[in-house]
Design a protein around this nucleic acid. Sequence first.
DNA 1: CGCGAAACTGTCAACGTTATCAGCATATCT
DNA 2: AGATATGCTGATAACGTTGACAGTTTCGCG
Lengths: 338, 338
Amino acid sequence: MKRTTIVDVGRLAGVSAKTVSRVLNGEPHVSQAVKQRVREAADALDYHPNVFAQALVRRKSNMIGLIYENPSPSYVVELQRGVLDRLTGERYQLVVIPIRSVQEHAGEVVGMLRSAALDGVVLAPPASDNPIILNQLKDARILCARIAPTRMIDAAPSNLIDDVAAAREIAEHIIGLGHREIAIIRGDPTHASTEARMLGYMQAFYKAGIELRLERIEPGLFTFDSGLSAARDIFGRGDRPTAILAQNDDMAVGAMMAAREFGLSIPDDLSVVGFDDSEVSRITWPRLTTVRQPVFEMAIAATEMLIAQLEDRAVTARITHPHELLIRESAAPPRSLE
Amino acid sequence: MKRTTIVDVGRLAGVSAKTVSRVLNGEPHVSQAVKQRVREAADALDYHPNVFAQALVRRKSNMIGLIYENPSPSYVVELQRGVLDRLTGERYQLVVIPIRSVQEHAGEVVGMLRSAALDGVVLAPPASDNPIILNQLKDARILCARIAPTRMIDAAPSNLIDDVAAAREIAEHIIGLGHREIAIIRGDPTHASTEARMLGYMQAFYKAGIELRLERIEPGLFTFDSGLSAARDIFGRGDRPTAILAQNDDMAVGAMMAAREFGLSIPDDLSVVGFDDSEVSRITWPRLTTVRQPVFEMAIAATEMLIAQLEDRAVTARITHPHELLIRESAAPPRSLE
DNA sequence: CGCGAAACTGTCAACGTTATCAGCATATCT
DNA sequence: AGATATGCTGATAACGTTGACAGTTTCGCG
């Protein structure tokens, strides 16, 4: 069985292959009558251009990639939803490149991208912050747009939120409620925003004159399970805090689960806050006080930046997206103040 | 700037392009010495084959698609995770095809796939059940493997669970706890498993001699919000049930949220059960009694079936995956029996 | 009416790879 | 020894499309 080619369409319409190509690609210098005939012939033959022949001769694949390392399911879904949303109606395809550990395999990533012949990639954390990947992309001339990088902001188009300010604001909210004994569950140490959020918390503590003790800082990995076990460790020790700042919502929800295991009611015995405003923050009870990070919008904007580069349009180099403190039911004044 | 081609590698190694091709594709009839020289030359030049030229001449793209319609985020994540998991180490790329409404755009789907030049697709519900898509795929000679179809099981390789039995079992569990006043929140009517689960519930009701009243069946869409508003409707009416069977976990969690709005405590005032064992069922409190559907494993198996077809290996035509009733804390005997 | 410019259309050669076939050398069998 | 198979290698022609260029027609304007 032979595929129908552009030559077949041309034969049926009585024109050359080149003319068919011109019509189908919307190039000028084709008469209306010919346009019409070619369109009809293409429809009649149910012609679909061969994207590989196009890619070969145009040296452009029309495929873009999304690189992430699975931190939290809701984050990934939002991310991908944003990219796909911007891509509908465009001629680009999304290829998903799963990376187990960006940290460990940074050197191999660009090789994979080159093999996949992508025109460009949207980099989500932690790849968006990885200097090795950024440099290799530049060398391989693969375009990129970044989501939530914290370093080398001007190395490639970036979509940011002010992680430090957002973290400071939510910490100030907790302090404002009267909490002084506050534990922190950190995110994945390979994500740079972990440090940025840490810094924001510390600024708030410093301003309020609260000492942050080292044993109040618990490591985590941005997953529900890591939040659960971090909180268990916190509660297992004698000196129980009245509030927990978790660096994302999944870990905060894990901490809430641990609180129930220890018979602590939220927010009466313990306040818990998260970060991201991911779906889980809205479906648990009590609903989670958190900071909204507009992941969906950032993904759309990053994809737009990438497309703009691919089509040689002017590119916005940096967008700082607004964050927003969302006060819900998981945080309240500590019992001692009631 | 010119790309390094297979000819360049051949020149450096002192052999023909064809021989380089033979070495790189692991074909026989090449001497060890030549193999060695070619490998070194390819490394030295940092050669990556042009996948489009390969695809053009081989008439194979090495790209497969995943088609879903976004019902529940956790379901989609599991699905995609499964496909990617099976694909690691293979030479296939995953292209994500987002479809707004399979029901409405069934006719356009295959056109999109042909344009994308995919070798095959993994079909998730509701596309896996759509006869238009199935037929057009066959006409276009695009291979496929299906996840959770309910009709035309033998039309293409399928990964199933026994939806009817699973639904019956969870309904029997609720009935066994003593519930008689039971409401149902249905799933998206365009997904065939909605009907299958309905049937399972009804079998259990029939066996127990319980009459199912029409006003106890509430429509839903497999989303948290649809579950929330369905449950609000249920509670808003005078005649309140003691248990709710939701056709997936997201809707069940929505129903739990509505219950709290109405001051109902779970499971004391109301039992709620879901379906799927998605992540949300484990992170809410009380944790959701549900039926585990092994989505991840089904996605892996479907991808395996697709790869087997692509490589002309023997294909398992059908796998029925085990389901499992998971009894957690969201269902208990009704208060009247305590 | 003549002439340059613009509009339209076609020809040919790439793009980078692999399939096909042919050629030669060496090994194996009668 | 001659015939036959087998291992290794290269030349050539596709795969389906578009870029570069050239040729022809039509149009506008003095």
